[in-house]
C-alpha cells in the first residue's frame, strides 16, 4: 500500500465561488493596471503591503513600546497617554503630508499653483506644539486634581 500523501482540502464551496468571482474582476482590471509598467506597478502594489506590514507597523510599535517602557522605568507610567496621543497625531499628519512638509515637491508646487510652498513645515510644527501643549496642560490639571484628592 502506498503511504497517503496529505492533501489540501477544498474548503467551503460558497467561499470558493465568491473568491473566484473576486479574482475574475481583479484579474480583468489587473492586466490593465499592469499594462504600462508591469514591474513598477507590481513593485508598488506588493511593496506597499510589505512596507506597511514589515517596516512601518513594526517601527511604530517599537517606538510605542520604548515610550511605554521608558516612562515605566522613570516611574511615570501614568504619563503614557499624554506623550503617546500628541506624538501619534503629529506622526500621522507627517505620514500623510510628508511631500509638502518635507519640501520635496516645493519647486513644482510653486510653479504649478503660484502659491508659496514654505508654510507647510512651520504649520505642522505649530500643530505639533499645540498638541503637546494641550496634552501637557491636561496632564498638569489631572496631577493637580490628584494632589488635591490625595
Amino acid at each position: 500500500m502506498r503511504p497517503r500523501r496529505p492533501r489540501l482540502p477544498l474548503g467551503s464551496p460558497r467561499q470558493l465561488v465568491l473568491l473566484g468571482c473576486s479574482f475574475a474582476v481583479a484579474g480583468y482590471a489587473g492586466v490593465r493596471l499592469l499594462a504600462s509598467d508591469p514591474l513598477g506597478v507590481l513593485l508598488w502594489f506588493v511593496g506597499a503591503a510589505l512596507l506597511h506590514d514589515l517596516v512601518l507597523l513594526p517601527l511604530y510599535s517599537a517606538a510605542d513600546r520604548s515610550l511605554v517602557r521608558g516612562l515605566g522605568t522613570a516611574g511615570r507610567r501614568a504619563w503614557t497617554p499624554y506623550a503617546r496621543v500628541p506624538a501619534a497625531l503629529s506622526a500621522l499628519l507627517l505620514l500623510v503630508w510628508f511631500p509638502l512638509i518635507g519640501g520635496r515637491v516645493a519647486e513644482r508646487y510653486r510653479l504649478v499653483t503660484g502659491l508659496s510652498p514654505d508654510g507647510f513645515l512651520a504649520r505642522w510644527l505649530l500643530i505639533t506644539a499645540v498638541l503637546f501643549a494641550g496634552s501637557a496642560l491636561s496632564a498638569a490639571r489631572r496631577a493637580r486634581r490628584a494632589a488635591r484628592g490625595g
Binding site: 482540502p9 477544498l10 474548503g11 470558493l16 473568491l19 479574482f23 506588493v46 503591503a49
Partner: peptide, 18 residues
C-alpha cells in the same frame, strides 16, 4: 493554508491590503 479556500482567501488579502 488549511484548505484551498483558505489559501485563496489569503492570496485575496494581498490584493486587499496591497
Amino acid at each position: 493554508a488549511r484548505s484551498l479556500a483558505h489559501a485563496l482567501e489569503r492570496l485575496s488579502l494581498l490584493l486587499l491590503v496591497g
